[in-house]
Simulated scan of single mutants.
Amino acid sequence: MSKYYFVYLLKDIATETHHYTGFTEDLADRLARHNRGQVPHTAPFAPWRIETSIAFTSEEKARAFEQYLKSGSGRAFAAKHL
């Protein structure tokens, strides 16, 4: 059975104006941690919902895509396509 690595984009539920991009191996647990306020960067804007998630079988490719989405051109790509 293949292991998956997820790149995900979150959007805050209250105002839908805050976004967060991250990487995880356990998407459900990671979302729960964001919503419990256990991630300092996202705690002030909880609760969150998953806007987009993409599964990779390669950790290297997943981390590279996460870094791309955090760049200027990656943020523009995500806003337009994801």
Rank of each mutant, 00 (worst) to 15 (best):
D26Y: 13
A62P: 15
L27N: 09
P44Y: 08
H41I: 06
R49L: 06
Y20G: 01
Y20W: 09
Y4I: 03
K70F: 00
T52V: 13
K80H: 11
R36D: 10
W48S: 00
R63P: 06
A78C: 11
R75A: 12
I13K: 15
L10I: 01
A64M: 05
D26P: 04
Y4C: 03
F23L: 15
S71E: 06
K70N: 14
R30I: 03
Y68Q: 05
I50N: 02
F56R: 10
E51F: 13
G72I: 10
S2V: 13
A14C: 07
E51T: 10
E60S: 11
G72D: 13
G74K: 08
R36Y: 05
K3E: 14
T15I: 02
L69E: 00
W48Y: 02
T52W: 10
P40Y: 05
H18I: 05
S2K: 14
R63G: 06
S58H: 11
F65N: 01
A28L: 13
Y20I: 02
S53N: 12
P44L: 07
Y20H: 14
L9P: 00
W48N: 00
L69Q: 03
E16Y: 06
E16P: 02
V7G: 00
N35E: 05
S71C: 08
H18F: 12
L9W: 08
E16A: 15
T24L: 05
S71M: 08
Y4T: 07
